[in-house]
């Protein structure tokens, strides 16, 4: 989003303020100094903590079927209500959040690492290696994400792991293209020549010297990919192609609630809100990272 609006602002007018303190955490501090970044990071941290501590926060087992009536509205005992099998919806939402995060974040990380490594190597090597890699990347980027996801799910069958693989594969070409561009921009610079002159090998130059300087746009892409991954994982769960039934996920809970919309409005509400908070936090964070690391710092 930020990248889109960049062109419209007189971005180069004001140089970014220098962050105080050691340069090591300067970027992090710049992100958190931005209200967007602070809210985004706070929201994300809260949700991750809730997902990690689901056993502690929720008083019930997500699979346990309580005695009593079905589809109870929110109460003190069950703050998010009870589903059609008398299971506590707070517990199911929190455990569902955990599964949604587990299906998307590690997959983005894996896709980002693989794609970045491939892009760096392609950009550094040049020649036919680069040509072959980039043609494959173009072909992969030409297809909408859903079609690649369908292809992966056909081969591996429905399930959380397949969703993760689909997300990772979807991210590889994005990062390859970005990392290659960064590599092309960096490799002619003097510090690279200096490193070569000191006898550093290609691996050391690529992954130590250049990676550090090429990181910022990749970091922004990680945040943007996380948004897309959470959405894709939730949509696939909603379609019934994600985790297997007794396991809850945010998308799966919303799907399960459809037959009961008439009587139980709270059933889809809380998983939907959790998903919305997660997506908004990630988006704010992505904007803040882009602003803190981009060449057009606004604040």
């Amino acid at each position: 989003m930020t990248q889109l609006s960049l062109g419209s602002r007189r971005s180069l007018r004001s140089p970014a303020p220098r962050a105080k303190g050691p340069p090591r955490f300067a970027t992090l501090r710049r992100i958190l100094a931005n209200p967007q970044g602070l809210i985004g990071a706070g929201g994300l941290a809260l949700l991750v903590l809730l997902a990690l501590g689901a056993e502690l926060v929720a008083a019930h087992d997500p699979a346990a079927q309580d005695a009593g009536r079905r589809l109870l509205s929110p109460s003190v005992a069950h703050p998010f209500g009870v589903d059609e099998l008398r299971r506590d919806l707070l517990a199911r939402t929190l455990f569902g959040l955990r599964i949604s995060l587990l299906a998307s974040f590690p997959a983005v990380a894996a896709g980002a690492l693989a794609g970045t490594a491939l892009g760096f190597v392609a950009g550094y090597a040049g020649g036919w290696v680069e040509a072959v890699v980039m043609r494959c990347v173009d072909a992969m980027l030409a297809m909408p994400g859903l079609l690649s996801a369908i292809a992966v799910l056909t081969v591996l069958g429905p399930g959380s792991i397949s969703v993760g693989v689909a997300i990772a594969l979807f991210n590889v070409p994005l990062f390859t293209r970005l990392a290659r561009g960064q590599m092309l921009a960096e490799r002619g610079k003097e510090y690279v020549r200096a490193a070569e002159a000191t006898g550093a090998g290609p691996a050391r130059i690529i992954f130590i010297h250049i990676a550090r300087n090429a990181a910022p746009p990749l970091l922004t892409q990680v945040a943007m990919s996380a948004v897309a991954a959470v959405m894709l994982a939730a949509a696939l769960s909603f379609l019934g192609l994600g985790e297997r039934p007794p396991e809850p996920s945010l998308g799966g809970l919303i799907n399960a609630s459809r037959p009961y919309l008439r009587t139980a409005w709270w059933y889809p509400l809380f998983p939907g809100l959790t998903l919305a908070v997660l997506l908004v936090s990630l988006n704010l964070l992505a904007d803040a990272i882009a602003e803190a690391t981009g060449p057009y710092r606004r604040r």
Binding site: P268, G272, V277
Partner: peptide, 23 residues
């Protein structure tokens, strides 16, 4: 509007529309 569209995946929006306009 953008913030709103970003927070709601189309299936959440769809369920919300379904709840409001038909239920």
């Amino acid at each position: 509007y953008t913030a709103f569209a970003v927070a709601l995946p189309s299936f959440v929006l769809g369920v919300a529309l379904l709840w409001l306009f038909s239920v």
